[in-house]
């Protein structure tokens, strides 16, 4: 797989699956180092820019969130195909995170609560409609962590991982060095 730009910049792609975007926000919390980063890398598909589809193979793919619908699975598999190295960023990507709290409950119960039983819908949904349409993705029976769907190369813990940790991990990866994760960086909040 060929990646990298003619000028030798590594190419990075990011995505948010069933996450809350907090991991992307923590990434932005590297603050002025963002300006250094854009000298080091070129961004490809990412919700942070205007590139909606992969236009080339990438060196690093950062994945936030696990898989809660068929579209998430599709995107994750595409990331696996197009990125040399995949990093699961944060608890949701690593273990399903908070959305996986629904795994102990049937999907139907979750849908009923949101669309049929809640106090602002109970008497205003006479058709007892639950969204279902070819134009919206199908929800999976449970929330899957990324590594149950594709092979993941690295895992960055935290909810979200701290900005400094993201920066250290990214710069280590760019330099081709292994990053030693210290015990104190493991926070499952």
């Amino acid at each position: 797989m060929s990646a990298g730009t003619p000028t030798g910049k590594k190419i990075v792609a990011t995505t948010s699956l069933a996450g809350c975007f907090g991991c992307h926000m923590s990434f932005l919390d590297i603050d002025e180092r963002l300006l250094d980063l854009i000298e080091l890398v070129e961004f490809n598909k990412s919700p942070l820019d205007d590139i909606k589809t992969f236009t080339k193979d990438c060196d690093i793919g950062l994945i936030e969130g696990g898989c809660c619908n068929d579209e998430n699975v599709h995107v994750l598999m595409e990331f696996r195909r197009r990125c040399k190295t995949l990093v699961a960023l944060g608890e949701c990507a690593i273990m399903g995170g908070l959305p996986a709290m629904r795994n102990t409950i049937s999907l139907q119960e979750c849908l009923d609560e949101a669309y049929r039983l809640g106090p602002t819908v109970a008497d205003s949904n006479p058709g007892r409609i639950i969204p279902c349409d070819p134009d919206i993705p199908r929800i999976l029976n449970r929330v899957y962590p990324c590594h149950e769907v594709v092979q993941i190369d690295y895992f960055l813990p935290g909810c979200p991982p701290n900005a400094d940790l993201i920066w250290d991990a990214l710069t280590s990866l760019l330099a081709g060095k292994e990053l030693a994760l210290e015990y104190r960086t493991f926070k499952y909040d």
């Binding site: 975007f21 907090g22 908070l98 959305p99 979750c110 849908l111 949101a114």
Partner: peptide
């Protein structure tokens, strides 16, 4: 195109957990 089911799965959790749980709706 997104559905997560927070309304249902916070049921059964102690009330003091709600502020820290539900903020995971949005980072």
């Amino acid at each position: 195109v997104e559905f997560r089911g927070f309304e249902r799965f916070v049921q059964g959790r102690p009330y003091w957990e709600a502020p820290v749980l539900v903020q995971r709706l949005c980072g």
